[in-house]
């Protein structure tokens, strides 16, 4: 369970948001939605303590993560798998090594075990043939899948997805959505999906947090969202649906 309490963040004079509070339940897929530049990704980086807020706290396992020292923060982060918007693959090493990377540094597995685990993860994202390819040769969708394989390789308790479907064709986006759902259901991981893709939200999310006008504008389950008549949320959803129809 991740409790976000009264978070406030600003960069210099620019306020990102304030008073953000909600709880992410174990096993749920929580979508954080909002317009571009509303601070969704920034919030994501607070959840694994990559950024520190001006005020407020995030409680994971009954501890405020911002009170942890650097070593403990790093231990905490190992419980998170993160799929970055641009996949953030290391370009100096090939696909296999990218996925094997956390294993090499955080486990004592031998080469055989590493190979086995990496290939299983790649098979899971349907990329076992691309193992020896350089990351620069991969397409956007493949990169996302490699990134996902890397994010799950340490079998994390939480997985955070930063715009998992952005820049992908609908078919690939659906594949990714499928993977997100499958991850949550099959391995019982808690997922946090940052996106502005309503299609994706409707497909995977259990709960939705809507960031708007420098605050948490709305928070509830996907069903509650469908019935909600909060003006900003409705506007946002309508705009997105219009886009989908187009």
């Amino acid at each position: 369970m991740i409790e976000i309490k009264n978070l406030k963040k600003s960069f210099g004079d620019l306020l990102v948001w304030e008073g953000v509070s909600f709880t992410i339940e174990e096993g749920d897929i929580t979508a954080i939605i909002g317009r571009s530049g509303c601070g969704k990704s920034v919030l994501l980086k607070h959840i694994n303590a990559l950024l520190t807020p001006d005020e407020g706290e995030i409680i994971i396992d009954e501890k405020n993560i911002f009170d942890l020292d650097y070593v403990d923060k790093r231990l905490l982060r190992q419980k998170f798998g993160v799929l970055f918007q641009g996949s953030a693959l290391f370009d100096s090493i090939n696909t296999f090594e990218n996925v094997a990377f956390p294993l090499r540094y955080f486990t004592n597995q031998n080469e055989e075990e590493i190979h086995e685990n990496v290939m299983r993860a790649l098979r899971y994202v349907n990329l076992e043939n691309a193992a020896q390819q350089e990351t620069a040769e991969l397409s956007g969708g493949m990169r996302k899948r490699v990134g996902l394989a890397r994010a799950i390789i340490l079998e994390p308790k939480y997985i955070m997805y930063d715009e998992p479907t952005s820049g992908l064709d609908p078919q690939t986006a659906d594949e990714i959505n499928g993977l997100i759902l499958d991850m949550a259901r099959q391995f019982d991981v808690t997922s946090i999906v940052v996106t502005h893709d309503m299609h994706s939200v409707l497909e995977v999310a259990d709960k939705v947090a809507f960031l708007d006008q420098q605050k948490l504008s709305w928070f509830g389950t996907i069903d509650e969202m469908k019935q909600s008549n909060q003006k900003d949320l409705v506007n946002f959803i309508t705009a997105s649906e219009y886009q989908i129809k187009q």
């Binding site: 231990l75 190992q78 953030a88 290391f90 370009d91 955080f106």
Partner: peptide
């Protein structure tokens, strides 16, 4: 710089790397 702007540094940090 490239690692920073392509979030590779964030990726490292979020994996628990220093």
């Amino acid at each position: 710089g490239t690692m920073r702007v392509s979030e590779q540094i964030d990726a490292l940090e979020s994996m628990g790397f220093n």
